[in-house]
């Protein structure tokens, strides 16, 4: 087995999930200029809902085809997350659209705490195990081991990201979204229902988050009420790395962050002669972020904003 190829592959799997979650951050940020801190928790809710549906189906119809089962669970999770996002935006962000910039940040933190604790009360504190409804098969690719679940993750993420890019760049809805992010006032004057576009943006992001949650739970076979928080932060880091507000940047940032973490943890010890070890994995990621931002203050693909923003 080729160790380097395996590390690159590990990074790509991790990175494609980061990218999927980062898209949600970046879309909301692009349109509202708001860090949606609760986005990570939406990922968690998606995973939990899918897990609950699969467990229920397994106990009632143990003979059901796994494809149908995952389709049902996925649909349920996506619907729940979308309506959740709709209500979050409606109740916690919309009333604060003209408030000082930090007010919606604090409500976002509040929502995040609220969702985590509600999930904890409903699903308990223990790590929950995810039943393996698909048999895990391992393949060899360029000398690296890859499981069927990992192939699934990379494929689904790539398809969704491509789909999103198509929506944003080639549909009427996408044009309305881009117009709204340029200027809400002007977009409104052009006959765009700004509130509706913002709601839709939140819901699309939440749908992606739900899928990300299912993919993660499926890959690691565990789900936990706190699983969304760190993931959300990492994804947010990825979005900033790529240039927040920029969809391509989020994908690039996500993949890059996954690769940095994986290769950092794998080689940092050898590179520094054993002085730094894999416990500095996260430091490595943040240092790269800081260095990138020092030289490109708006991220890798971020547009240069004039000082008078």
């Amino acid at each position: 087995m080729d160790i380097f190829a395996q590390q690159v592959l590990n990074g790509l799997v991790l990175g494609s999930v980061y990218a999927l979650v980062a898209l949600g951050y970046t879309m909301v940020y692009g349109i509202l200029g708001l860090i949606n801190f609760a986005h990570g928790e939406v990922v968690m809710i998606g995973a939990m809902i899918a897990l609950a549906v699969v467990s229920a189906l397994l106990s009632v119809f143990p003979e059901m085809s796994p494809f149908l089962m995952i389709a049902l669970a996925g649909t349920a999770a996506i619907l729940v997350c979308m309506s959740l996002a709709f209500f979050i935006e409606r109740l916690a962000y919309r009333p604060l659209r003209n408030a000082p910039r930090l007010a919606p940040l604090i409500t976002a933190i509040g929502i995040s705490i609220l969702l985590q604790n509600i999930a904890m009360i409903i699903w308990g504190r223990k790590y929950k195990t995810v039943p393996q409804i698909f048999p895990t098969e391992t393949f060899e690719l360029f000398g690296a081991n890859i499981t069927s679940v990992q192939i699934f993750i990379i494929t689904v993420s790539a398809l969704l990201m491509a789909g999103l890019l198509v929506i944003v760049h080639f549909t009427k809805l996408g044009r309305a979204m881009r117009a709204t992010s340029e200027s809400q006032r002007v977009a409104g004057l052009m006959g765009i229902n700004v509130n509706k576009i913002i709601s839709v943006t939140f819901m699309i992001g939440a749908g992606l988050a739900a899928v990300a949650g299912i993919l993660i739970a499926g890959n690691y076979s565990v789900a936990h009420y706190s699983m969304g928080f760190m993931l959300g932060l990492k994804a947010f880091t990825a979005a900033v790395l790529g240039g927040i507000g920029n969809l391509g940047g989020a994908v690039l940032g996500g993949l890059l962050l996954g690769l940095i973490e994986s290769i950092g943890a794998g080689y940092i010890g050898d590179l520094t002669g054993g002085f730094l070890g894999s416990h500095y994995q996260d430091v490595f990621a943040f240092v790269v972020l800081i260095v990138v931002l020092v030289f490109r203050p708006t991220g890798i693909m971020g547009e240069r904003v004039s000082e008078r923003a």
Binding site: M230, A265, H279
Partner: peptide, 15 residues
């Protein structure tokens, strides 16, 4: 090394 918030250990396990 890892930490108690992580569920991905593939990088260190690969090493």
């Amino acid at each position: 090394f890892t930490d108690i918030t992580k569920t991905d250990f593939t990088a260190i396990l690969t090493k």
